[in-house]
Computed example of a mutant assay.
Amino acid sequence: MTEQRRSSDWRHTTLTELLGLRLPIVLGPFGGLSSVALAAAVSNAGGLGSFGLYGYDAERIRLAARQIRELTTRPFNLNLWLDHDNAAALAPTEAEFTSWLEPLLPYFHELDVAPPTRPAQFLPTVAEQFDAVVEARPSVVSFVFGVPSAGMLDRCRSAGIRAIGTATTVAESIALDAAGVDAIVASGFEAGGHRVSFLNTAEDSLMGLFALLPQVVDAVSVPVIAAGGIADGRGIAAALTLGADAAVLGTAFLTTDESAISPAHRERILSPEATRTVLTRVYSGRLARGIPNRMYSELTKKAADHSAGNATTGATALAPFPAQNWLTGRFKPAAIERRNAELMSLWAGQAGPLARAGSATELMSRLEAETSALLG
């Protein structure tokens, strides 16, 4: 169990001392939706800005780090997806690729986008990405979908980089603590985007934050960061009261001015439709939470038809990760350009209805004031 040093000021925790933060507020790292401006704004306001590196090759990683440093001198976090289930090595045959593409062809045709050919690879290697991260030397590197190796953690320590792991269950948090990470994110199933489970399937690792957080705090020896369903000062105060050293906010920052999401995505989060989110594999091949749309409904039916062996529909299997994410990513830019929210991945958490428009700096000020009003 972590021994937390708490002053009378909620802003001062073991984690804020460790990372040199003014506020125990962490920007969620958005894989594919990250913004240099947003990461820098959160860091400049005293929190920990984060930038997700999903799909980034070494040169893009180096560029993102340089751009963030041009906007802030404060600590920031780069986030890496570990190669869970050896996903980066996925190499379908031409026939398999064609069968995975077939359920998506109507969307390519609707958006006037030429269907893609089979790529040499769907993702850069984690080794390539990690080398670039160590070279970039952010204050923090956070990992999802597994436990970083001893070699990775040694290289982080040698470079002066703090390492944060991410857990969706108590068992995962214990594994991360034993490996020697500096802090652990306890991610409740309320969170938007991908469920980052790695010891069991994501469907068998769905714990709500209020159940997960105090159990993780009791089980590990390092600071714990709460994530999932937090969008205002009430959520931050609750997380700190349950033993967290900081809180992650994701969806609340997606609607800020500095966010990289499309106008159609932002409008959907700020609409009444954000009251319903679903966990699904149809967008990317991995379980993730977002606002349902027409693509979700149609692909869910196709997946069900295939599972039921419904020969009358000619249903074929949806692609696994990362192929499904890569394939849908070929037509999403056209959907964004046309403001067609029905053919996008509308990632959002269950606290989406609490999100507001405005700048990230304004949001950080509001979060500080709201939390101070509750914790003093």
Rank of each mutant, 00 (worst) to 15 (best):
E298I: 09
V278I: 15
L206W: 11
T275M: 13
F253L: 12
R266V: 09
S259R: 13
A238W: 04
E267N: 14
N310P: 08
L212K: 03
A317E: 05
I261Q: 03
Y296F: 15
L240T: 01
G250K: 05
G250R: 00
G235F: 03
S284F: 02
Y283Q: 03
I269V: 15
S205V: 10
A311R: 14
G250F: 07
A211D: 14
S221R: 15
A226C: 12
P322S: 09
P292H: 12
G235W: 00
L270Q: 01
S284L: 06
H306C: 09
F321T: 06
T251W: 02
A315D: 08
T280I: 12
T201K: 08
A237C: 13
L270I: 12
T316N: 11
R281V: 14
T280A: 14
T255I: 12
P292F: 11
M295H: 05
L249P: 00
G290L: 02
V222T: 06
G243V: 04
A288E: 07
T256F: 03
G235E: 05
T251Q: 11
P272S: 09
G233S: 06
L212D: 01
A211H: 10
L209G: 00
R234W: 07
S259P: 15
L213E: 02
G233K: 01
V217E: 04
T312N: 12
M207G: 06
F210D: 02
G285N: 10
T256G: 08
L254E: 04
I261H: 01
A304L: 14
I236D: 00
L213C: 09
G228W: 03
S307T: 13
V282P: 02
I291N: 01
T201Q: 08
P272N: 13
V224K: 02
P214D: 15
A260W: 04
A319H: 01
K302E: 03
I236K: 03
N310K: 15
G233T: 07
A308C: 11
T277G: 06
I225F: 02
R294D: 15
E273C: 10
S284R: 02
L249E: 01
I225C: 04
S271L: 10
E267I: 09
A211C: 11
Y296I: 15
A202Y: 10
L240P: 00
K301Q: 15
A226D: 02
P223V: 05
V216G: 03
A238Q: 08
V282H: 00
Y296E: 12
V222K: 00
D257H: 14
V217P: 00
L279C: 05
A211K: 11
S284W: 03
A317N: 11
P322M: 07
A319I: 05
A202C: 14
D257W: 10
E267A: 13
S205Q: 12
L270S: 04
A219W: 00
P292C: 15
